[in-house]
């Protein structure tokens, strides 16, 4: 290694430690006056950029209807087997909808495969990173928790259109 020197290769000044110690002290002293980037978490919150993969949510189109057609691709591709979809028929134009759509948040690994594979752009990763449960059964998110109005997801959808 070029950075490491053996003791016999050190110069006299390096060998008496003191100048090197002063160098180290100077470094920490300059660090003390540097502004830090700490966020006071519960009061100040981190707003992630659009590329952030938070918890997956279902897009709720205008008119309170989910985009999902219950094709089951997301459930198929999910490497952690976190998604469960049950399809059913509907009178609407798209003919199919999920009766049951559940994501087990204890299993989800936030890989974003579901979002990538979705043909309808119906499941996307949100910016929500605060996932707390007191029971395991609480960790299974049903449609009530998964459906998010499209207005709240514009950032991510635009990101997907540009970069996916």
């Amino acid at each position: 290694m070029s950075g490491m020197k053996r003791k016999k290769d050190l110069t006299f000044l390096q060998r008496i430690y003191l100048p090197e110690i002063v160098k180290g002290l100077k470094l920490t002293l300059t660090n003390m006056f540097r502004p830090n980037v700490t966020l006071q978490y519960p009061e100040q919150k981190f707003t992630p950029p659009a590329s952030y993969r938070g918890r997956p949510v279902l897009v709720e189109d205008k008119g309170n209807a989910e985009r999902c057609v219950a094709c089951g691709l997301c459930a198929r591709v999910c490497p952690a087997l976190a998604i469960e979809v049950q399809a059913s028929e509907t009178e609407n134009e798209k003919e199919r909808y999920p009766v049951k759509f559940e994501i087990n948040m204890l299993r989800c690994i936030f890989c974003g495969f579901c979002e990538e594979v979705c043909p309808e752009e119906a499941i996307v990763m949100s910016k929500d990173y605060e996932l707390v449960f007191s029971k395991r059964s609480d960790a299974i998110y049903g449609k009530d928790k998964l459906l998010v109005p499209i207005d709240n997801l514009k950032d991510r959808l635009e990101f997907l259109r540009n970069f996916k």
């Binding site: 660090n31 003390m32 540097r34 830090n36 980037v37 700490t38």
Partner: peptide, 13 residues
């Protein structure tokens, strides 16, 4: 406090 300043932290607050 000084430790946290030296390490760009906030320290007890």
């Amino acid at each position: 406090k000084i430790a946290s300043w030296a390490q760009n932290r906030v320290g007890p607050n």
